[in-house]
């Protein structure tokens, strides 16, 4: 199964990656704190940025972004950027999250030999097949799904967080050369 098959269409006709996860014995407060931590402390946190939180601390929205390359290019460079939204909601004992609003911005080569966004060209992923070859469209969709699956796993990892046993301290061996 291609990764893009993990994306479904929602009732507005938008691609969505949606999961509901049971987290028994965890309060909504704990889950919310863990979810926020996952956003703030993940290694590539620059790819997910907190956009808004609700007043009751039960849901938040993040902006996501990642770069993609065409598969039809001879050399690999950034051919576009994709932005999306991550929505997360928690309740006592369960939470749900979904990625949606995937938008593709094509990149172009500038005068300094860098690849930069083409300002003003934002293509919803649902309409991208009108603009690009099928191979590239399939690849971009795969990348959207891979991003959502990867970030989803990371989020779920934080949500399941168990106390991590403190590692034994390694004592440095000291050698005294006065006595031999």
């Amino acid at each position: 199964m291609a990764q893009k098959d993990s994306l479904a269409l929602d009732d507005h006709g938008k691609y969505i990656y949606y999961k509901v996860v049971t987290a028994a014995n965890n309060s909504a407060g704990v889950l919310y704190a863990r979810a926020l931590t996952s956003i703030k402390r993940s290694a590539d946190g620059r790819r997910l940025k907190l956009l808004s939180e609700d007043a009751k601390n039960t849901s938040f929205v993040c902006d996501g972004n990642f770069l993609v390359s065409k598969v039809t290019s001879l050399a690999k460079h950034d051919d576009g950027g994709i932005t999306c939204k991550l929505n997360c909601e928690v309740k006592d004992g369960k939470y749900r999250y979904w990625f949606t609003d995937f938008v593709f911005t094509p990149y172009m080569r500038d005068r300094y030999n860098s690849y930069v966004p083409q300002i003003g060209l934002d293509i919803p992923i649902e309409k991208i097949e009108k603009k690009y070859d099928k191979k590239d469209v399939d690849h971009f969709m795969d990348e959207c799904a891979a991003f959502a699956i990867g970030k989803g796993r990371l989020l779920e990892g934080y949500m399941q967080a168990e106390p991590v046993a403190k590692k034994d301290t390694v004592t440095k061996k000291v050698i005294t050369i006065n006595k031999w």
Partner: peptide
Amino acid sequence: ALAVSGLAAKAQDAKP
């Protein structure tokens, strides 16, 4: 929860 998340995060963090 925050402490646990933090420790877990440390374990999961990788060099960009």
